[in-house]
Amino acid sequence: MRTQLQQVSTRFSITLIDELAPERDDLLFVQVEKDQAVPFLTWLQELAGYTHLVFFTAVDFIEEGYFQLTYMVHDYSTHQDLAVLLKLDREDPVVESIHHLWPHAATYQQEMYEMYGIEFPGSPRLHDDFVLEGWDDLPPMRRDFDTRQYSEDTYFPRGGRKSRDTAEYMKEQLYPGEAETW
């Protein structure tokens, strides 16, 4: 597979990332540019034997300013997985849909729109609610959405709960007057 990928690496401007799964011979990571993703995936599906879209999801690397899209495809004849990674600018999260290649990709895309705010123009029912009915906050799987804050603002904490820090408590009890506390 590796050689096959190397042959098309310039055609689809892909780079193999070996360090991600060095121990695995059945899993390969490859990075693709945004405009080459769909052609590359089409080639994988139609010509390279990667007929199974295992899943399609996003990872938010907010510190570096991008979403990593992961198209995981599988070749049933060799039982090989190929993870196609795409770095998508967080500021402009729009990318071509792949529902025409695998119809169920539409569900992944619908979910990713809802959870990360990633646009896949043309994907069926993309903007319909998937899991979150009536959600009007930040797409919640983005790293900057603070679940704890949200729950504190939205729900009532149970009253009467108070915990003590071991070291602080011992200090209060045992050496409130000593140097450290002044």
Partner: peptide, 30 residues
């Protein structure tokens, strides 16, 4: 010994450390 390690690992925040006695040597009293 009231070390609070149980509280630390609980992913549900189900545990509070509460005073039950005076602190003893090597025991926080929580």
């Amino acid at each position: 010994i009231g070390c609070g390690t149980c509280e630390e690992i609980c992913q549900n925040a189900a545990i509070d450390m509460v005073p039950v006695s005076k602190t003893k040597h090597g025991d926080s009293g929580l």
